[in-house]
């Protein structure tokens, strides 16, 4: 399915042998791969395959796949008729797009000025120590990703930490550690 739609987007005649192994790989990694590529198709269609829609499509891809792997980027490049370099360049330019899979849980520590002045760097340090990873990394077991945000705009309740999309305010290191330990115990 994947192969079909990607090859129809570009010179169909010579492509199949080259993409065959890739498709197999995609299928083994993403059992539901087909449907997600379909969502991408729909998004691109809604934007009439205009190259300008690249960021919208990347947002959609990240939302459906969790991260942007090479196959997905190639697929988007073909769909929007853009050179892969442009797609890759855009995907790597923005912090929000990730080319690596993220953990089952994500913990985002806000390091904006208001949070920083109120000690968010201490929260960040303790979390890094507990998990044994740096900001922007995922634990080897794939459980928890630790990230830093520039400012999430919750300065009134600084320091703020986002646990799986839910903002928690006035976080002391021990409070954040407790949440992380709950995840680790799962």
């Amino acid at each position: 399915m994947v192969m079909q739609s990607s090859t129809t987007a570009q010179s169909p005649s010579e492509q199949p042998p080259a993409t065959q192994p890739k498709v197999a790989k995609t299928k083994s990694e993403h059992p539901s791969g087909d449907r997600r590529f379909k969502t991408l198709d729909m998004t691109m269609k809604r934007h009439q395959y205009k190259p300008d829609a690249l960021i919208e499509v990347l947002h959609k891809a990240q939302e459906s796949f969790g991260y942007l792997e090479e196959d997905v980027l190639t697929y988007i490049a073909r769909g929007l008729k853009l050179p892969l370099s442009k797609v890759y360049g855009t995907a790597t330019f923005y912090h929000l797009f990730s080319l690596k899979p993220s953990g089952a849980h994500t913990c985002v520590v806000c390091l904006g000025t208001a949070c920083y002045v109120k000690g968010s760097n201490k929260v960040a340090e303790e979390l890094q120590q507990e998990l044994g990873i740096q900001m922007g990394e995922t634990t080897p077991d794939g459980k928890i990703s630790l990230m830093a945000a520039r400012c999430i705009g919750a300065c009134g309740i600084a320091p703020a930490v986002v646990f799986d999309g839910t903002v928690a305010g006035k976080q002391q290191p021990e409070m954040a550690l407790a949440r992380i330990k709950d995840w680790e115990a799962e």
Partner: peptide, 25 residues
């Protein structure tokens, strides 16, 4: 609505325009 993707420089007007056009900011 156009949604940013986490780049501070996109607050600069010409960078923001590039971003709406789907490119690097």
């Amino acid at each position: 609505i156009r949604i940013g993707a986490g780049a501070f420089v996109c607050g600069e007007e010409t960078a923001l325009i590039q971003s709406i056009e789907g490119g690097r900011g």
